[in-house]
Amino acid sequence: METRIALIGIIVENPDSVEELNHLLHEYGHYIIGRMGIPYRERNLNIISVAIDAPQDIISALSGKIGRLNGIGVKTVYSNITGNNATNS
């Protein structure tokens, strides 16, 4: 199956939604290459970046589900590189 590499940028403004967010990231964990979280205490928010290698529809589904969480913003940036990822098929 053809996959794409993408970076999902997440800004968490509502800490009450973190449990739901972590559940979603765990659910899609086999597609995630890595993630980095940065607490920004001065602004009382968290910034998370998630690198993912998955089919386009999977990336869109995850991004959409994250975007529907209360107090969480999300944007996705896609690489132009596509390919077959044998570990995700």
Rank of each mutant, 00 (worst) to 15 (best):
Arg41Glu: 12
Pro55Ala: 13
Ser17Cys: 07
Asn80Gln: 14
Asn22Gly: 09
Val74Phe: 00
Asn88Gln: 14
Tyr31Gly: 03
Gln56Met: 14
Ala86Ser: 14
Ile33His: 02
Asp16Val: 09
Arg43Asp: 06
Ser79Leu: 12
Asn88Trp: 08
Val18Leu: 11
Glu20Asn: 14
Leu25Thr: 05
Ile47Asn: 04
Glu27Ile: 07
Ser60Lys: 08
Asp57Pro: 02
Pro15Tyr: 13
Pro55Gln: 09
Glu2Phe: 11
Gly64Ala: 12
Lys75Glu: 13
Ala51Thr: 09
Ile33Thr: 07
Asp53Lys: 06
Glu42Pro: 03
Leu24Ile: 10
Gly67Phe: 04
Glu2Cys: 04
Val50Trp: 02
Ser60Pro: 00
Arg35Glu: 02
Val18Ala: 14
Ser49Lys: 11
His30Glu: 15
Ser49Cys: 09
Ala6Thr: 02
Asp16Pro: 01
Ala54Leu: 06
Thr82Tyr: 11
Ala61Arg: 11
Ile5Thr: 10
Ile10Arg: 03
Pro39Trp: 04
Asn88Tyr: 07
Gly9Phe: 05
Ile32Gln: 03
Ile48Arg: 01
Ile48Val: 13
Leu21Met: 07
Ala51Phe: 10
Tyr28Val: 03
Glu2Tyr: 13
Ser49Pro: 04
Arg41Asn: 12
Ala86Leu: 14
Asn88Pro: 03
Tyr28Pro: 01
Pro39Ser: 11
Asn22Glu: 13
Tyr31Ala: 03
Leu21Lys: 03
Val74His: 01
Pro39Cys: 08
Met1Gln: 11
Gly34Pro: 02
Gly34Asp: 15
Ile72Ser: 02
Asn22Asp: 11
Ser49Val: 15
Pro15Lys: 12
Glu13Pro: 00
Gly34Phe: 07
His30Ser: 11
Leu62Ile: 10
Val50His: 02
Val74Ala: 02
Thr3Leu: 08
Ser17Arg: 00
Ile47Thr: 12
Leu24Arg: 08
Leu21Ile: 03
Arg43Trp: 04
Ala6Asp: 01
Asn44Trp: 07
Arg41His: 12
Pro15Arg: 11
Leu69Glu: 01
Lys75Ser: 06
Asn88Ile: 13
Arg35Trp: 06
Glu2Ile: 13
Gly67Met: 04
Ile5Gly: 09
Ile33Asn: 04
Gly73Met: 08
Asn84Ala: 10
Ile8Cys: 07
Tyr78Thr: 05
Ser89Met: 11
Ile38Cys: 07
Gly83Tyr: 06
